[in-house]
Design a protein around this nucleic acid. Sequence first.
DNA 1: TTGACATGTGTACACCGTACACCTACCCTC
DNA 2: GAGGGTAGGTGTACGGTGTACACATGTCAA
Lengths: 237, 237
Amino acid sequence: MSTERPRLTRDRVLAAAIALADSSGIDALSMRSLAADQGVVPMALYKHVAGKQELLDGMVDAVLTGLPPLPGGSEWRPRLRERILATRATLLAHPWAPSVIETRTHASPIVLTYMDELMGIFRTGGFSAELTHLAMHALGIRMWGFTREVFPTPATPADPEQRAAMLAQFQTQFPHIVEIATATAGHPGSETAGCDAQVEFEFSLDALLDGLALRLAEQKASAANSARGRQRSASPR
Amino acid sequence: MSTERPRLTRDRVLAAAIALADSSGIDALSMRSLAADQGVVPMALYKHVAGKQELLDGMVDAVLTGLPPLPGGSEWRPRLRERILATRATLLAHPWAPSVIETRTHASPIVLTYMDELMGIFRTGGFSAELTHLAMHALGIRMWGFTREVFPTPATPADPEQRAAMLAQFQTQFPHIVEIATATAGHPGSETAGCDAQVEFEFSLDALLDGLALRLAEQKASAANSARGRQRSASPR
DNA sequence: TTGACATGTGTACACCGTACACCTACCCTC
DNA sequence: GAGGGTAGGTGTACGGTGTACACATGTCAA
């Protein structure tokens, strides 16, 4: 008579964890709350998941499974751009994903595959192994389609009079912040918590890709130079 | 006879917290461990610090206080570069700083001052308010002198035979990762936890600055264009 | 039918942050 | 000097966390 609840599965546990984190936030996701959500005692989860860290690892893997297939072609830049923006689109559905990804300490095969594919895009695009390494570092967390927003806002007092006074003080103390905040006040959604708005992300990504394109050109030029040098020093022999 | 311990101060609490986090890691820093370290009961700390979050805020502020003065001049690029690298040098002494900064939700006046100064560097360098806004987003967490390393390594089995088998499997499954790992194996310190190695950080920063320089040139070009346009349409009147 | 094994339970432990009431020792004022 | 307010430190307690360990149960194979 107690066979109402379907049997627990690792996949079911992960799906429930994702759903719970999506709806109630990552802070509300504890082994206990997840167990209660599944109508089960906390320790039951440990039969399907080694612990909380492994649960989070699995959640990331499960989300990454939804990624579209790797774009083909040999032009590194559009391929990379498309890939990263697709990842962004996938992760945007899960506000907790950025912070969880950032705190992972071990890469699962799925994560490794993702990174290997990105490196492959660089390599087939003409980047040397060395330059690919640096480029991956330059991408950093941006390879996951988001950037950590470090634009925290100070607490504003509720009383409007006090707030006006604070704004006046701000005006003299942080003139550029006020200028930029007012200049871009019309942008809705630029205050998104986990991920920054689309336009800002694309700006950042494209600026970085410009820088990498310059480095690739330098690499090709120096390779051509050294080839000429080798030819020159080899021919007299 | 119990007057051995000097009186607690907010500054003393913050200094003790920083020292404890430096030596034992940020995970070992709890209100209880900090209190024990100071020979005091946990709740005593709350007389000087509102709570744990405020403690962490204060730790960041205390570290930032050690920053060198803002470099002068009007050339945005060397100024920005010097500023950020100086911040990096300051934060490198505190491995916990990156993760703590990332989790702050409110900006203290000290943090706001830092960001305002960065914006000032852009503005005096010719960036429009709008472009400065985007540039700050593009800097993102890199404005603090580090980038989150998202290069986690999978757990390697202790048994050498198993490890060899794993490496062989890696070779076929993640060829680019292996290629790049072996190509850059000689770099010591590239596995640093919180901050990436100096060369990688500077590469990333410079690549990004290249991209921003291009955007600044575009902005100036379009401003000149629209000025010409205005002149042309105004003169007939 | 029986036993093995996977699945779920119950209890317990050591932590965490912090609310609240209390005590104590100092400094300032009369 | 006496008195009192207050800042600093204490003790206890509550609700939360992850998870180790022993035990019960239910399902499938032999």
